[in-house]
Amino acid sequence: MDVLYFAWVRERIGMPRERIETQAATVADLVDELRSREDRYAAAFADLSALRVALDQELGAFDAPLAGVREVAFFPPMTGG
């Protein structure tokens, strides 16, 4: 699936998007998988309460299942307006 990062999550991880082959069942499982990869991921995902997630461009929850999802995005709380 495509994993996208925005704002400071993108800066900490060092790229805007990547393609990931994963067997993770939920968003939280995917986060655990990413955290264990490298320090920069661990830093970006250190505090999930500071993050939001979108599944196929709809806001979702960290316990949401990933089955059938093509695009997951991680970002900080939005600051539009």
Binding site: F6, A7, A73, F75, P76, P77, M78, T79, G80, G81
Partner: peptide, 14 residues
């Protein structure tokens, strides 16, 4: 509209 787009539209300000 203003209240919702402040915290529900995916924009980030730097």
């Amino acid at each position: 509209l203003m209240d919702y787009l402040k915290s529900r539209a995916p924009f980030w300000k730097k």
